[in-house]
């Protein structure tokens, strides 16, 4: 099993046809994942935050968004944006950008869950201490809860980045020339080197994911794990509302056990 082609092939795997054509290959996977994470970060934070609100009209839309996006296969999302965005916008957008948009929409829903869990993992006493010292909810969130939540979230965010990176492979279906597509192209050009070309694809993904997931594990050891998937707080927490209300909120909605300071 020898290496397919020459040096130019390795470059093709890593960068695509870069100097002469568009960026592709493994680099494109990374670029897609980074762009999607960057674009979705704010939206995800807002969604995760509003999911904690006690106000129905803030909470329900964000729950709907998160749950619907999480229940839809990524391929479906990509098709929606690839085929139907042009109808809506009235003009064509490139394959690359429709992939980026779909991935961002997808990532926002998952990030929202990471944010929510991160915020809820900050002990409730922190928010209380901040409120008692006269800070507004917004200030308490900004200076006290959020910085701590962010730190807790880092390992989950890195893990999510790995999974998003793997998911970018799906974009090959609409013709984005990323690593999988590159492998298929090479194997079709040189059918005799089929094994090697797929092997290269596998190795490419493996190296990036392996190192990133080890980074995530290291961070987890340092910062501490918290299990996102089994973490399902349905707490609706008054103090996370953007603006305080004076409307009386029934007590059933106040969280049970887990959220109360550990002293009790």
């Amino acid at each position: 099993m020898d290496f397919p082609g020459s040096f130019s092939n390795i470059k093709f795997y890593l960068l695509g046809a870069y100097p002469n054509g568009p960026v592709g290959g493994l680099l494109l996977n990374i670029v897609l994942a980074i762009l999607a994470i960057a674009f979705s970060f704010l939206v995800g934070a807002l969604l995760g935050y509003s999911r904690l609100s006690c106000r129905k009209y803030i909470k329900v839309p964000s729950v709907l968004y998160i749950e619907i996006v999480r229940a839809t296969p990524l391929i479906m999302l990509i098709f929606w944006f690839y085929f139907f965005l042009p109808y809506v916008l009235g003009k064509n957008i490139s394959v690359f950008w429709s992939a980026v948009i779909a991935l961002s929409i997808y990532a926002a829903a998952y990030e929202a869950e990471i944010f929510r869990a991160g915020i809820l993992a900050v002990p409730r006493g922190q928010m209380e201490a901040a409120l008692t010292s006269g800070m507004t909810r917004y200030q308490a969130m900004k200076f006290i809860v959020f910085p701590q939540a962010l730190k807790i979230m880092v390992p989950s965010l890195v893990s999510f980045f790995v999974s998003l990176f793997k998911d970018t492979s799906v974009t090959f279906i609409i013709g984005v020339i990323e690593l999988t597509q590159t492998g298929i192209i090479v194997s079709q050009r040189q059918p005799d080197k089929m094994y090697a070309s797929y092997l290269c694809v596998a190795i490419g993904y493996f190296i990036v994911c392996f190192s990133m997931s080890h980074l995530a594990r290291m961070l987890e050891k340092k910062i501490g794990v918290f299990d996102l998937e089994s973490y399902r707080p349905d707490a609706c927490r008054d103090e996370y509302m953007l603006m305080p209300t004076h409307r009386k909120i029934p007590d059933e909605k106040v969280p049970a056990a887990g959220c109360y300071p550990p002293g009790l």
Partner: peptide, 19 residues
């Protein structure tokens, strides 16, 4: 875990019968 599921699906379709 470190190689996307899509790759494995493609692998079993294209490569597996060959080997």
């Amino acid at each position: 875990r470190n190689i996307p599921g899509l790759f494995w699906v493609i692998f079993f379709y294209f490569i597996f019968p060959e080997i």
